[in-house]
Design a protein around this nucleic acid. Structure first.
Lengths: 215, 215
DNA sequence: AATTAAATTTAGACAAAGCTAAAAATTATA
DNA sequence: TATAATTTTTAGCTTTGTCTAAATTTAATT
């Protein structure tokens, strides 16, 4: 499997986890910052290899084989992210691009040994679940902070947006995985939130609240 | 720089370290298991980028820029090999192919952090030197066991051949880096050696002795 | 020195993965 | 429902890195 094929599978996998329905050519093109015509070419190729179910003009979905392959790439990506943060002391906003490269290294033995070396983590540094060697995922039920009501208290367990900008903002506000967050006030005018993080009180926009997972 | 370009640079670097003279197209082709015509194409490209000095029909050598680039690839390869052996518990005969992939990961920060994580090793699991971040190499003077004479004693500090077969043979004979080796007898007929490794006495062929570095 | 052999390069072709522009199918709208 | 707008696909071109076969240059040998 080529790097490019792997990237397409991963993208389709991620898009599927949001929408459930078949994925459109344009959606893939947009996510991958490529052209629709390139996507069409690749879908034919992946279909040929039984990695996706593809019908012209109708969109695409992963076959079982494709889904497992995608999960293995996600597994690698997230395990490498753990390695970078926990062992090499990278911060959580720096690891994505490097993991994007490392996820394509081909060696099952390597990834399973890495898994053991890291103590078989179930989540990556952004709170996303890590599939095991069989592709099984432990789902943690979690809500967006934006769906919380006044006086509710929860623990930050993940981020939806993993962009460097967002993660650096969180660092600045001292919001990390494991932080306790309490809703003090919900401003009805702009849907912003007054929250307590640890001992500090801060105001965050609705956009921020819509990208924080709480349990 | 593409994977392919990096592989050519690395190959030229390795060939240079043996012969010193300009490298021939065929030598590169043979080492890389590709065709001479493909090599010619790539040499033009590398020359265009000032990574090699290339004159038609005359052979090729690395420029300073090319040599530094090659050293950085070798640095990455050998640091990753250390990681695999020391942290993930791979054996020394398993790491080459995986490091061959990992050496192409692009991130200076990553490789320098990995270097620190490993305690800034100066040699890889086969006894080969690891260039530092500036490309400097600590040269250790070492001899082939085959050049030793009767009654000489030394420590095994490296292997010339790093093929899995050879390394497994050494494991079987309990010869490892750091093993003390004493020449008991040199058989003039076939140039084989009777040696003492630790407490055991064994006989090894000249081919084996020609691939073991001793200090 | 002439000829043969070997090494090297050139020319032209191919597969992968991308692109643009045009055609076709689907969806939305008047 | 007919037309317009959007989406998707097709056709053809480009680049990278490879190949084969032919041409050229260098080296070896008579």
């Amino acid at each position: 499997m080529t790097f490019s094929e792997e990237n397409y599978l991963k993208t389709i996998y991620h898009l599927t986890s949001v929408s459930d329905a078949d994925i459109s050519t344009n959606a893939i093109a947009e996510k991958m910052e490529t052209k629709a015509s390139s996507v069409t070419d690749m879908l034919k190729k992946l279909s040929e290899k039984d990695l996706v179910n593809y019908i012209k003009y109708q969109g695409v979905s992963l076959t079982d084989k494709g889904k497992l392959a995608a999960k293995m790439i996600v597994r690698k990506h997230r395990l490498w992210e753990c390695f970078l943060v926990e062992k090499l002391d990278f911060s959580w906003d720096e690891v994505h691009d490097i993991a994007e490269q490392l996820e394509h290294i081909k060696s099952e033995k390597l990834i399973n040994k890495l898994d053991d070396f890291l103590g078989n983590p179930t989540e990556d540094p952004h709170g996303d679940p890590i599939p095991d060697a069989q592709g099984r995922i432990i789902k943690v039920e979690k809500q967006l902070l934006s769906e919380f009501e006044k006086n509710q208290i929860g623990i930050c367990v993940g981020v939806k947006d993993t962009s460097s900008d967002f993660l650096k903002y969180l660092d600045k506000q001292e919001i990390a995985l494991g932080s306790q967050i309490e809703i003090i006030e919900k401003e009805s005018f702009d849907s912003s939130f007054r929250i307590r993080v640890g001992t500090k009180e801060i105001t965050i926009s609705n956009k921020i609240a819509s990208n924080l997972y709480i349990k």
